[in-house]
């Protein structure tokens, strides 16, 4: 403290042996990090060895990894996931906006949707969509459509409806929360400029909501890719279903399940990378927005303050 009161550049007489300003500095050694790295590598080696020595024919895994049936199945997996996610996002925004509406009928309708579709298992919903023809044998809309329900609700349509409508109920709550976290002042500013509720929602609230909920949407996309495997139970020939049909014949159960795991991991990894760039793109203009570094480039994160 005495140095603070003493502006003289010379070392304080109370501390005659203080080091010079250009004294070199040495970093802390962090031996714990090296030890944990060694232990981690050892455990990993053990795990790899266990699987390598285990009852898995890795050549079969390699052989089926690029089998045509599996690739086509993965294509269906991607298509179901994309369609169901798109449906879920549309429903989520529609009902999420309704949840914040001034009109109580709209609010109640959206609440009812969430209550039903978030409150029952998605597998159950898939089975009900797939068997909806038992309730409504014909789909009849005057002047538009008149068909047998089983012809309309194919396994693909049932999968997309089941997964999409269910996801929509979760996203409704996400969107409602996102709209609620947009600063009230932004809305007031829009009102004082004379923007109508519709203009305010479209131009000011929704673009900010989208930024707020992007991480949640990324979660949804990753989740959807995995949940699409449930469609295997309603005879939809996506990847897991294709793998099952193969191992019922050749008995290579674990090998084909591993093939699926590898493809699912590849898919979710690509989605995570896409999400990172999407968030960075929409993050421009945000407070303190220096570009983040991708986690997959393995740079150290800045310490939390």
């Amino acid at each position: 403290m005495s140095t603070l009161q003493n502006p003289s550049p010379a070392p304080s007489p109370h501390f005659p042996d203080l080091p010079r300003a250009d004294t070199p500095k040495r970093q802390l050694a962090h031996p714990g990090r090296w030890i944990s790295a060694v232990i981690g590598l050892a455990l990993l080696a053990l795990l790899v060895r266990a699987f390598a020595m285990g009852q898995i024919r890795w050549d079969v895994v390699g052989q089926f990894l690029t089998a045509r049936v599996i690739i086509v199945g993965f294509g269906w997996t991607l298509l179901i996931s994309a369609c169901a996610l798109a449906l879920g996002v549309v429903l989520g925004f529609a009902f999420g906006i309704m949840r914040t509406a001034a009109n109580p009928t709209l609010r109640l309708a959206a609440w009812l949707y969430v209550w039903i579709f978030r409150g029952t298992p998605v597998l159950l919903q898939l089975l009900i969509w797939f068997n909806i023809g038992l309730v409504f044998p014909r789909l009849y809309i005057p002047g538009l459509i008149d068909e047998r329900m089983v012809d309309v609700i194919t396994p693909f349509v049932a999968a997309v409806l089941g997964l999409g409508v269910n996801e929509g109920s979760y996203l409704t709550e996400v969107v409602r929360g996102g709209i609620g976290s947009v600063d009230r002042g932004q809305v007031e500013a829009a009102h004082t400029l004379g923007m109508t509720p519709g203009q305010t929602m479209r131009r000011i609230v929704l673009p900010q909501t989208l930024r707020l909920i992007l991480p949640a949407l990324g979660n949804s996309a990753v989740g959807m890719l995995k949940f699409s495997s449930l469609a295997a139970t309603i005879a939809m020939g996506e990847m897991l279903n294709a793998a099952q049909r193969i191992y019922f014949i050749n008995g290579a159960v674990i090998e084909l399940l591993f093939v699926c795991a590898i493809w699912y991991l590849a898919g979710t990894t690509m989605l995570s990378i896409g999400q990172f760039y999407l968030e960075r793109h929409f993050g421009r203009g945000a407070a303190g927005s220096e570009p983040r570094k991708p986690w997959f480039r393995m740079r150290p994160r800045r310490a939390a303050v």
């Binding site: 600063d183 004082t192 923007m195 900010q208």
Partner: peptide, 21 residues
């Protein structure tokens, strides 16, 4: 809203649209 736009409002906390230049 048509009436409100005839009154320009400046807020204590600015309320600029965050993601617009």
């Amino acid at each position: 809203r048509a009436q409100q736009r005839r009154l320009g409002m400046v807020f204590q906390h600015f309320n600029l649209f965050a993601y617009r230049t």
